[in-house]
Design a protein around this nucleic acid. Structure first.
Length: 271
DNA sequence: ACTATGTCCTGCGAGC
DNA sequence: TGCTCGCAGGACATAG
């Protein structure tokens, strides 16, 4: 499930591979497509456009498209959200298309950019001047971070997952950050002390940066734009470790469900 | 204005 | 062995 570190890894890889390339043609699958814009709109907006840059915004991959000369389209962007199982891979046209391939962009360089997504939670759209709703966790100050949770009765775990507050944190890194900060996921967000908020802010930034260094976590079927897996799953301390001994105190890791999401924590280390 | 819950979708693994 | 069933979860809709 691509979260901030995975999306960052993919976006960096794509920027390296396709920045400066031109989209010659667009193929879309026939099944009900995971599109936000209409299919014709999407094809029209992408065709013959040059990709100036690829970057990440929250969990979104942003393709900045070079402005066209004949219209005042301005800063059009192709936005890809990978959902749970989406992947975006650069491939040679000869390679067989994977099952659940929903979109293929033929590039002037002769390569293809392929979007596949078995579970169809991913979304494609073309818009102008895209802005994700929440704040980037790697940019936010400690004070602004603390202010996000003021007065919120919802569990801190749910607040971390709320993309309108923070942009890019998903289930894995929420659990991992809470473990590293020593805070139980069910704690009401507003009940966190100033010290705990400080620890959480630091822990979150550290775990995200470390995960980016490791190329993200490959748990289900995440691969980067080269089709390569990440390695941060080997560094998980609580996520996916139910019943296994805590790496700090050997207490078995617990798994509970919060707002329909599985949450992993150490009952000894997290309070 | 918040918060909680249901829905989408397919593959996979547990259990019989 | 082969089947059913439940689970995985990001974002959004809807209800409270």
């Amino acid at each position: 499930m691509p979260e901030l570190p995975e999306v960052e890894t993919i976006a960096r890889g794509l920027d390296r591979q396709v920045a400066g390339d031109v989209i010659e043609s667009v193929w879309l699958g026939s099944k009900p497509e995971p599109l936000k814009s209409s299919a014709t709109e999407l094809v029209a907006a992408l065709q013959a456009r040059k990709i100036s840059r690829v970057r990440r915004a929250g969990k979104h991959i942003v393709f900045d498209l070079e402005p066209t000369t004949n219209d005042g389209n301005g800063n059009a962007q192709w936005i890809v959200h990978l959902g749970m199982t989406g992947s975006l891979v650069v491939s040679s046209p000869e390679r067989e298309r994977e099952k659940h391939t929903h979109a293929v962009l033929q590039l002037a360089s002769g390569r293809e950019l392929r979007f596949t997504d078995p579970r169809r939670f991913g979304r494609l759209s073309v818009i102008e001047d895209f802005e994700p709703p929440g704040v980037e966790p790697l940019q936010i100050s400690a004070d602004n971070f603390a202010a996000l949770f003021r007065g919120r009765k919802t569990p801190i775990k749910s607040a971390l997952l709320n993309q309108r507050l923070l942009s890019g944190v998903g289930n894995i890194y929420a659990d991992e950050a809470l473990f590293r900060a020593g805070i139980r996921p069910r704690r009401r967000a507003a009940s966190l002390t100033r010290d705990e908020l400080k620890r959480l802010h630091l822990a979150l930034k550290r775990v995200l940066r470390e995960a980016i260094r490791f190329g993200g976590s490959s748990v289900s079927d995440y691969v980067d734009s080269d089709g390569e897996e990440g390695f941060f799953q080997l560094k998980h301390r609580v996520y996916g470790r139910e019943g296994k001994p805590c790496l700090v105190c050997k207490t078995p890791i617990k798994r509970i469900v919060i707002a329909g999401r599985s949450s992993h924590y150490c009952p000894q280390c997290q309070r």
